[in-house]
Design a binder for these strands. Structure first.
Lengths: 200, 200, 200, 200
DNA sequence: AATGAATGAGTCTTCATTCAT
DNA sequence: AATGAATGAAGACTCATTCAT
């Protein structure tokens, strides 16, 4: 019974993940989620009180999985650059894995303070995980740096999502590039004169 | 007549920009836009065929303004680092100015291929503008670098949007930080041993 | 325009009166009311915010009409018994007139405090109208007497509603009977011994 | 088994009486009745074919109890006025006891002909019980008189239902008043001149 | 060109009822 | 007999769009 219950619960979350992810919140009908999950419309409401609550649950599961896996993977390295590399690989591979399920990352209902609060929390936690790594390297401005790194990765993932020919290996190459660029800076990729320095 | 027509056209775009931007596509009603524009509901349809088309027009006007202003500003510097700094300042200041219109960029209708195509085009153009700057510096992998830089900036803008206490000056400081980090890399902010280098 | 507007407003109230009255609140669909009023479903919501509000409006209109007409008619007599007779005739004739429209008098949504409050107010006003008449006759216990009279009339109306063969004249005869019974008591209709008196 | 069966049957009726009575037919969910009865939802359907049938059964049990108790109590008096007094006391006390179940009698499903038929039958039986008493007193128009008396009582019960401060004694006082008014008429409570008589 | 009253397709959600266990 | 998970029909309400004026 518990396993049946869990099974349907999971099936609904999976269906909702797929449909919300590729279609967005408003474009996805509860009836479609039910069909996708292979159950009746009313059954969805036995497991989730409303469409918004279901969306929250999907988001939460995804974000938590992302953070948990990251923490796990970070244990594999002791160096700063190793850890930054792991973060990059994780970020890009995570979306690579989900490219078929989630083309457009979530278009959420606005005006839902609970969801906004959760997303803020998630970003904060993700950022703190990166901050922690950076602090071990003795970084000043670790929060700005963490934001920057995450931003880089988040943009670099886009092609992965939209380009069907993107392969796993390409994802890892991008990760390497991102880590390298972040640490060594653009100068290594450029021909800059000694004094060509950014001015504030 | 033409000026009257233009006037209403602009009033609708302004109203839609304000409301779509702060409320999102689905949350904004055509009737609200009409009220905000000071005209009747039916009149909106004399200027824009549908809600989606109006959203497209709003997006287009905004993105074009973004790119045009960027091109204009880039003329002010001849050095790579100067131009990168301009890009950063532009990106962050642009959002700073538009704090209240946050949501326009995330909360679009999804299943509209035309909009997706346009956003892709915009991103491509923005990226090419950055690529051009980087190529002048002799960059290898200019597209990846451009994406990374834009990603950094896009993430660093977030606090600007959500933190009401963020001031213009803070935006410029962030821009300086971003340009510096991008060019010189994280090492300048860290205490790394000689051999602590990222592994691909 | 105003007359058009009023026309639809009235048409909806009429339709709702008919359908709520004969079918009850829950049994009546908003779509049916729209069809009966000869308009589209959505139009009902231009005039009434919700089904409950429409029900309230129907109830209010009916009750107010009932009380206004009563006040008007009461002016026609100066004696107590004349006024009681008018009350009886009004009560019974009112339902006689509406028998085709309103077989089952309103089955209201429960748990609607606003409606309960209004119905209480209506009953209070109706009762006070009767109380006033009784006080002019120097009655002691006028409220209990008013309640009793109204109760009598309300029960005597039932056959009028359900018996299709009931005619206008029958309604007036009943009214006369009710007034007589109320004033002179049952004794006139009975063969009671001198000492057969109710014991408290 | 039969006793178990009977036990559940009764438990469901009790639960339904409580909930239908205080909440109304539509507002009460079968699942709530099951919870209140301490059984599973599906079990209700082993004893009652449908929600409407259950409502019928509740109504029937209540009405039958009302009539049986009345018949029983009427044996206690041999005089007309004694019996009318008993009827009044019974009617008012019955509702006094059931204060919490107010709504059962007004909030029935409408379009159920079976229920309408039963309620008509009940009213007929109640009326005939009163008619029989009146006929023993030699009444003319006994049915109209019975209706009137019942109507009086039914209205006088209202305050009992809605006024929480109403006590058992108050109910009995009202009963005495009602019986007195019905028999002796309003004249005893008024200052009417000899010729102030109702005009038909 | 401008209006805004009218439309009706579209979707979430509820809950009586069923049936496999 | 008892359960309660699952069903799906049904209906209130919204809002983009139209069109008579």
């Amino acid at each position: 019974m518990s396993s049946t219950s869990n099974h349907k619960h999971t099936a609904i979350l999976d269906a909702a993940y797929e449909l919300f992810g590729s279609g967005g919140f408003y474009e996805t009908k509860m009836s479609e989620i039910a069909v996708q999950a292979g159950i009746a419309k009313g059954t969805v409401y036995l497991y989730f009180k409303s469409k918004e609550e279901l969306f929250m649950a999907v988001t939460r599961r995804d974000c938590e999985g992302f953070l948990q896996q990251l923490q796990e993977k970070l244990k594999a390295s002791d160096t700063l650059s190793g850890k930054l590399s792991i973060i990059a690989k994780h970020h890009l591979y995570y979306y690579y894995e989900r490219k078929r399920h989630t083309k457009l990352f979530f278009r959420a209902p606005n005006n839902n303070p609970e969801l906004v609060a959760y997303m803020t929390l998630f970003m904060e936690e993700y950022m703190q995980a990166v901050v922690k790594v950076l602090l071990e390297g003795g970084a000043s401005e670790p929060e700005l740096m963490a934001q920057s790194y995450i931003g880089m990765l988040d943009r670099l993932k886009m092609d992965i999502l939209f380009d069907p020919s993107f392969m796993e290996d390409d994802a890892y190459k991008r990760a390497g590039f991102a880590a390298g660029l972040f640490i060594k800076g653009a100068m290594d990729y450029l021909n800059l004169g000694q004094d060509d320095r950014p001015v504030e």
